[in-house]
């Protein structure tokens, strides 16, 4: 990967990059397919239901595939009074950054697409772009519910980005780098979750809010706004919004693993298990946790959500910087 990036560009390189990109996209799509199934199965298990169990055998293994196929062959409807160009563009703008951020995530020692020296900053900056897509979709639909949903999404995602970014300052202090690879290497002895528990806590909550998942699913609060910003979307455009959400789930869970759970580093004495597998295990725990939260908690109200971000999470995140610096100075 490294050599390819620094080598003289040529058509072969373009082809290789394209192939690798496609491979990652396929991996991510595969994850999304089974994350949705896992979510439905786990929720079903928590709620005494079986979940999907018809398409693809007893465990519903092909259910999501069938769902996606159905979405793809659906009639493409655009409301008459919608802002056509924006309406068409919105899902793309929402989705592209979700996929772009994956480039910097180190899945194992060797498996990373772009080893940027400011990987973390890149992730945060690019993921912020999705908000525009969502707001755009909410506006372009020319529907009052989706407008309200879009506004909520914008307010929420911008507010929660701040504690999210500040909460990782502790990690940056310990690692002394914004490079995600260096951050993982810095955790060879001890995962940062033990060094900055407050940071982890703030990061986890903010990331759930960033993902618009329960209990912060206000932008698409079904019982209030019907479906929020994507009320008017159907078919594959809607699928793109959903895809965005689940790709972000993938990305955010990966980032949590990298920043706080030690990435591909094994638990002591179990080093013989390959790094990618460790990454997968930690990553799955994070994803499961988010599904679990969804099965348990009710939803916050918009004003409480904002109050929580600015009055609780932000001071905690700031405190975390101080505490982390003190820990680094005194114990490390």
């Amino acid at each position: 990967m490294e050599d390819l990036l620094y080598a003289q560009p040529g058509w072969t390189h373009v082809a290789i990059f394209f192939a690798l990109g496609a491979a990652l996209l396929m991996t991510v799509l595969g994850f999304v397919t089974y994350a949705i199934l896992a979510e439905r199965k786990v929720l079903g298990f928590m709620q005494m239901r079986t979940g999907p169990n018809r398409v693809g055998g007893r465990f519903g293994l092909l259910q999501t595939v069938a769902d996606v196929f159905k979405l793809l062959i659906k009639e493409d409807t655009i409301p008459k009074l919608a802002d056509r160009p924006l309406f068409i563009l919105a899902p793309v703008i929402a989705f592209a950054p979700a996929f772009m951020v994956l480039a910097t995530i180190p899945f194992s020692e060797n498996l990373q697409f772009a080893d940027l020296s400011v990987g973390l900053l890149y992730y945060v900056a690019v993921s912020g772009l999705s908000t525009i897509g969502i707001l755009m979709g909410g506006w372009a639909s020319n529907n009052k519910y989706s407008l309200l949903g879009g506004m909520r999404a914008a307010a929420q995602m911008i507010s929660y980005e701040i504690p999210l970014v500040i909460s990782v300052v502790g990690v940056i202090l310990f690692a002394g780098s914004l490079n995600l690879n260096d951050i993982v290497r810095g955790q060879e002895n001890i995962a940062y979750i033990f060094l900055t528990p407050i940071g982890f806590f703030v990061f986890l909550i903010s990331s759930i809010a960033e993902l618009n998942r329960t209990p912060f699913d206000l932008p698409e609060a079904e019982s209030e706004l019907v479906a929020g910003y994507h009320v008017e979307y159907s078919g594959f455009r809607w699928a793109f919004f959903m895809l965005t959400e689940y790709v972000y789930l993938f990305a955010m869970a990966s980032l949590t693993t990298v920043l706080f759970l030690g990435g591909w580093n094994p638990i002591p004495f179990l080093g013989f298990i390959p790094g990618a597998l460790w990454f997968g295990v930690k990553f799955s725990i994070v994803v499961f946790f988010m599904i679990w939260i969804r099965g348990t908690l009710p939803r916050l109200r918009a004003d409480q959500l904002m109050g929580f971000a600015w009055k609780v999470l932000l001071p905690l995140a700031l405190l975390n910087i101080f505490v982390s610096a003190a820990v680094k100075e005194l114990f490390l």
Partner: peptide, 16 residues
């Protein structure tokens, strides 16, 4: 009511 407030699971428990 809980479903309105955004919690999914109590609905299914209550219906059991």
């Amino acid at each position: 009511y809980l479903l309105d407030i955004g919690a999914m699971s109590p609905f299914l428990y209550a219906f059991r």
